[in-house]
Computed example of a mutant assay.
Amino acid sequence: MKIVIAPDSFKGSMTSTAAAEAIKKGIHQINPSCETVIIPMADGGEGTVDAMMSIMNGETRSAQVRDPLGREVSAAFGWIPETKTAVIETAAASGLTLLKGSELNPEAASTFGTGELVKSALDLGAEHIILGLGGSATVDGGAGFLQALGIRFFNKQGEVLEAGGNMLGEIQSIDSTQFDQRLKLVKWTVASDVTNPLLGNKGAVTVFGPQKGVMQEKFAAFEGGMRHFAEKVVEHTGLDCRHDQGSGAAGGLGFSLLSFFQPVFESGFNIMATESGLEDHLKDVALVLTGEGQIDGQSLYGKVPVGIGRIAAKYGIPVAVFAGKIEGDLELLHAEGIKLLLPIVNEPMTLTEAMTNGSALLEEAAARLMRTYELFGETGNKPV
Results as ranks from 00 to 15, higher is better:
Ile3Gln: 01
Ala18Val: 12
Thr36Cys: 15
Met41Glu: 00
Met52Pro: 00
Asn57Gly: 11
Glu59Ala: 02
Ala76Lys: 11
Trp79His: 13
Pro81Ser: 02
Ala91Glu: 10
Leu96Thr: 01
Thr97Pro: 11
Lys100Leu: 15
Gly101Tyr: 07
Glu107Gly: 14
Phe112Arg: 02
Glu116Lys: 06
Glu116Gly: 09
Ser120Phe: 04
Leu122Phe: 08
Gly125Lys: 04
Leu131Gln: 07
Leu131Met: 09
Gly132Lys: 11
Gly134Arg: 02
Ser136His: 03
Gly142Arg: 00
Phe145Ser: 00
Phe154Asp: 02
Glu162Gly: 14
Gly165Trp: 13
Met167Trp: 04
Leu168Met: 15
Gly169Thr: 00
Glu170Pro: 07
Ile171Glu: 06
Ser173Glu: 09
Lys184Phe: 10
Trp188Tyr: 14
Val190Glu: 01
Ser192Gln: 00
Asp193Asn: 09
Asn196Glu: 06
Gly200Tyr: 07
Val205His: 04
Phe208Leu: 10
Lys212Met: 00
Val214Glu: 00
Ala220Ile: 11
Gly224Tyr: 03
Met226Cys: 05
His228Cys: 08
Phe229Asn: 07
Glu235Cys: 11
Leu239His: 15
Arg242Phe: 06
Leu253Asn: 01
Phe260Trp: 14
Phe265Arg: 06
Ser267Val: 10
Asp284Lys: 10
Ala286Asn: 11
Leu289Cys: 13
Glu292Asn: 05
Gln298Gly: 08
Gly302Cys: 03
Arg310His: 08
Tyr315Phe: 15
Gly316Asn: 09
Pro318Asp: 06
Ala320Leu: 08
Ala323Pro: 08
Ile326Asp: 04
Leu330His: 05
Leu330Tyr: 12
Glu336Thr: 07
Leu342Ser: 05
Leu342Asp: 03
Met349Asn: 06
Met355Tyr: 03
Thr356Cys: 05
Gly358Trp: 09
Glu363Gln: 09
Ala366Tyr: 14
Arg368Phe: 13
Leu369Arg: 03
Arg371Gln: 13
Phe376Ala: 15
Thr379Gly: 04
Val384His: 13
